[in-house]
Design a protein around this nucleic acid. Structure first.
Lengths: 361, 361
DNA sequence: ATGAAAGCGCTAACAG
DNA sequence: CTGTTAGCGCTTTCAT
């Protein structure tokens, strides 16, 4: 008799824990009832291998009568991996992430995986800490919808240990599916240029530091130069504040957007920032677009509300999610190997009511 | 020699898998290096029991040199439980859920738990299926931020197997932390009444069916009756549609809100619905609040934007999250036993620009 | 204060 | 096609 039998249901049910709550039936119980071995039950459960039809039926019947449910924890343990995909989000509150997250969850779920979301917000230390916790959980893959902070530490913690995909942004050391930021910024800037604007500012808000540092600014500058307009340094603004910073110097935001030297049009790094700017303009009596034109980036649902009417650059959110999950799965299953693959999607300009010709002084 | 030794690092590292990637060090390796037993290492890791200071130091050093990290999967397996809290959300896209989710995640994390979000959207079958998957994962607790669909099935699957808390809504069979819906609806209705409205409608949108069926409608009716005004049946509206239904009958929404018989004020079951209604009014040239007053419920950030200016009922989102997680933890730790505890918070009226005196015909 | 040993429920060779 | 067996890495009594 195998050692295992010493701890069979009967033997332990007399113990101190046996009285309180019955233990869930295990694969062992099913095997006993069906008169087969654990392996056969296992084979049936996993639908793998060849099991004689008759045997399969018997096992299934046993599973049914016992109300057996495989123990996910045991399975994960023996396989040393889960079917959890970790999804790191910059901020739940930003509808762009919310929309993307929603799609990611759906595609992951359809593929038999569970998405586990982590809000990494703006605390870099926390982000590192959480990534490590995820790793200890042996998540099957990691999807970054945002990435910032201690990049190097995170990268080295992850590298080679688990498949990684970046969605909606691009980092060189992992697969990515994203929109071309520079193309998007170019579209936005050109739109303003074509409307007659000459003094166009580029404004970033905290949530998208990494993205901002990459393509957006470059696209903005390229478009400006191509039109012989002078690009200015990026303005960093924390929504809600009266001040902003430019080249490290604190400047009053209002002044930067009014008067003969102020910008007449603004390209924002994301819709949420653009909407906050809209709010700023409203509260300061700056007409949009009469006195100030604003272009966003993302095209969240919100931007399309009549009362917002934000001209913006659309990112194909659902498509990003679909391809991103697909890529991650391929990597996880070993169907995709070799260096990171970068999928670049095309952004599109969506014109609404927040842009128009520049004000005349 | 114990059987376990047969599979020591050395023996297996010569195997087929040994070459490709080194296995992570285990508690066994640490024990060997520190010259102690696994149990002692385990004691050190968990910080429990009494371990001699000197021993503890030696073990810690060994952990350090080996770069050992406890295997979360093994721990979960042997304990048959995780430190994951499942959070079921109605819809990520709804900022109310996003804000609540964000707070829940933070409080859970602070307590050493990981939040795992599931978007149950509007598919009832899916919701049941997911809850079962969560159960198989042996989540430590379940938090519902929304609840609908196959309630009974979900209830019976969960009952007694895992602690459950409802946040932002109330169900009798589990702990709950929520705002008094009827009080909120009363505040909203009374506000409209006091502004002079006599024909006030109550409008619900799909996301909150369960909530709507509970206190909101009751509060609305109570306030109406108290003022000798005639409450009308709830209007169900799918945002974006031109039609709505009332008592099972399809009606054109516009007509219900205009003319001498139409409502002059609307109490909405949630902010998102209210904002959608605002949008509807804008697109149909109905001035708000000149021709129609709108009150929301939740007070999401969005509602406070100058361009939205939604009068609404504020729910103390962060407080709900804090108390909700606290309750769940107490239940999980066995500190809280007995019948469900229901915590009811007080909603508050926030007056903005979407409400005013009724139109004059 | 520390060690020995018995599993947790399942998967995955490998043998028959 | 089915059974045997050896673990996965850790927690947890129970001795010592």
């Amino acid at each position: 008799m195998p050692a295992r039998a010493k701890s069979s249901r009967k033997a332990s049910s007399g113990g101190p824990r046996g009285s309180a709550r019955r233990r869930d039936p295990t694969i062992f119980d099913v095997a006993a009832l069906a008169g087969v071995s654990k392996s056969t039950v296992s084979n049936v459960i996993r639908g793998s291998d060849d099991v004689a039809e008759a045997t399969r039926e018997r096992v299934k019947a046993a599973i049914e009568t016992l109300g057996y449910r495989p123990n996910a924890l045991a399975r994960q343990f023996v396989r040393q991996r889960t079917t959890i995909i970790a999804v790191l989000i910059g901020d739940f509150d930003n509808p762009f992430y919310a929309e993307l997250a929603k799609s990611v969850e759906r595609y992951a779920f359809d593929a038999g995986y569970t998405a586990m979301f982590c809000n990494i917000e703006r605390d870099p230390d926390l982000a590192v800490y959480r990534v490590e916790a995820l790793l200890e959980q042996r998540v099957a893959g990691v999807a970054f919808l945002a990435f910032f902070g201690r990049s190097l530490e995170i990268e080295s913690a992850l590298q080679g240990r688990v498949p990684v995909v970046f969605m909606g942004l691009r980092e060189d050391w992992g697969d990515s599916v994203s929109v071309s930021e520079s193309a998007g910024a170019r579209l936005a800037t050109r739109h303003l240029l074509e409307a007659g604007h000459g003094r166009i500012a580029y404004l970033t808000t905290p949530f998208v530091e990494s993205r901002a540092s990459h393509g957006l600014a470059a696209g903005y500058r390229a478009a400006m130069r191509a039109a012989n307009a002078k690009p200015s340094a990026p303005i960093h603004w924390e929504p809600g504040a009266e001040q902003a910073t430019m080249l490290g110097e604190v400047i009053p935001l209002r002044e930067a957007l009014t008067g003969p030297d102020g910008a007449t049009g603004v390209v924002c790094s994301n819709d949420l920032g653009a909407i906050a700017l809209l709010e700023f303009a409203d509260r300061h009596g700056l007409g949009v677009p009469e006195q100030l034109s604003i272009v966003g980036f993302d095209d969240v649902h919100l931007a399309g509300l009549a009362r917002i009417g934000l001209t913006t650059i659309r990112q194909p959110i659902d498509e990003i999610a679909r391809l991103g999950v697909e890529t991650l799965l391929a990597r996880m299953r070993g169907e995709l190997t070799g260096p990171p693959r970068h999928e670049t999607l095309r952004p599109a300009l969506v014109v609404r009511s927040s842009t128009g010709p520049p004000r005349r002084e």
